[in-house]
Amino acid sequence: MIEITNLYKNFAKVEVLKGINLEIKKGGIFAILGPNGSGKTTLIKSILGMVIPRSGEIFINSTNIHNKWDYRKNINYLPQIANFPNNLSVIELIDMIKNLREKPTNDIELIELFALKPFLDKKLRNLSGGTRQKVNIVLAFMFDSEMLILDEPTTGLDPVSLIKLKKMIQLEKEKGKTIIITSHIMSFVEEIADEVVFLLDGNIYFKGTIAQLKSQTQQTNLELAIAGILTENNV
C-alpha cells in the first residue's frame, strides 16, 4: 500500500507537484493519467526515490521511504524512455540487473515470449525502439515483486506485443500485485485499469474508478471524458 501526503516538488521555479495526497491500495491496477507536464512521471519517480520531494511524505507499507533504498526490492520499474547503457549487449544488461537484485527470475520465458533471442548478443545501441521497449518490459517483469510501476509501457510496441503485455499485466494482477501505470493510450487504460487518478497541473483532479469518471463527466467513452476535462480547464 502506498500513502502519499502533501507532496510538493518543484524543479527550479516550476512547481510540478502541488500538494498531492493519494492512497493506492494493495492489489489491482492503478492508472495515473494527465496531460503532458502534469507531473505523472515526477510522481512515479518520487515513489521510486529518484526524485527527492521538496516536502511531504511517502509511505510504502507504512514505512517512510525518505533516504531508504531497500523498499525498492519489492518494486519493478519500467521507465518511460528505454535508455540503457549503450555499449552493453542485451544479455549483459539482463545479467547485470539479475546480479544486482539477486532475486529469482523468469527472464528466459519472457525472452521467448517476446522473441528476443536473436537480439541477445546485440549491443543495445543497435536495437530498434520497439525491441528496446521489449527489453525494457523483460527487465521490469522478470522479478516477482509486490509492486510494478510502468511508465508508458505501450510505447513503440506492435499489436502482437501489446496483447502479450496486456496479458502479462492481467496475470500479475491476478497474483494480487499492485500495478501503477501511466499511459496516454486511453483505450489501453480503459481496458485494464481498476482505478484512475487524474493529475492536472500538479494537483489531483479526480480519483476513482473509470465508471465514476465517466458518470462525473457524463461521457460514455474515457477518451472523451478526459478530453472534456482538459477543454473545461483550458489546457
Binding site: 521510486l48 526490492k73 518494486i75 521507465p79 535508455n83 547503457p85 540487473i97 544486482l100
Partner: peptide
C-alpha cells in the same frame, strides 16, 4: 554518457 546506466541503477534497490 552513463546517465542512462545511472537512472537504471537508481530504480534498483541500491
Amino acid at each position: 554518457n552513463s546517465r542512462e546506466f545511472t537512472e537504471l541503477l537508481l530504480a534498483q534497490p541500491l
